[in-house]
């Protein structure tokens, strides 16, 4: 296998702050196919585990923040790795989670996932016809993500 061929972005999942799956798209073949119900279960389960991982944070209790300041947030799970894929999780400050499935060789996954967040901010949040927390069916978002992540 060529060196460049192993760097693959497989899929992107977006989970809303209630743990519901609102976006699911595969960009390259390689992952086992799941049916849509399994994706929903995956999203819900990961949402729960992520919430627990935030609260079992072993960092010592910090002093209460000064008025007007916020406590530094604990991030919870940021990535899960196996021999054949890496899952990068990015949680926005409003609680939306971006899950990016890549091959372990793919570099800069945190940059990639943040760029996906920017595209989401531009084409989903700035779109007057999108209702918050609902599944994302936005044409320009699909097109922009495709332009960014699909290899020609």
């Amino acid at each position: 296998m060529q060196g460049s061929d192993v760097k693959v972005v497989f899929a992107l999942l977006i989970i809303n702050k209630a743990g519901g799956l609102i976006y699911n798209r595969t960009f390259a073949p390689g992952l086992q196919k799941l049916d849509s119900n399994d994706y929903l279960i995956l999203a819900g389960t990961f949402h729960g585990i992520h919430a627990i991982s935030r609260s079992i944070n072993p960092a010592p209790a910090s002093p209460p923040p000064l008025p007007g300041h916020r406590k530094t947030p604990t991030t919870g799970i940021e990535s899960v790795e196996s021999s054949h894929f890496r899952m990068t999780c990015f949680q926005t400050s409003t609680g939306v989670k971006f899950l990016l499935f890549t091959s372990p060789e793919q570099p800069n996954t945190d940059t990639v996932v943040r760029r996906c967040y920017e595209i989401y901010g531009d084409y989903v949040i700035k779109n007057p016809f999108y209702s918050m927390e609902m599944p994302i069916r936005v044409e320009k978002f699909d097109r922009a993500l495709g332009g960014y992540l699909v290899r020609p």
Partner: peptide
């Protein structure tokens, strides 16, 4: 720039 029209009102142009 940031507007995508849903399918049920595809005729609409903002």
């Amino acid at each position: 720039t940031f507007i995508s029209i849903p399918k049920e009102m595809s005729q609409l142009n903002c």
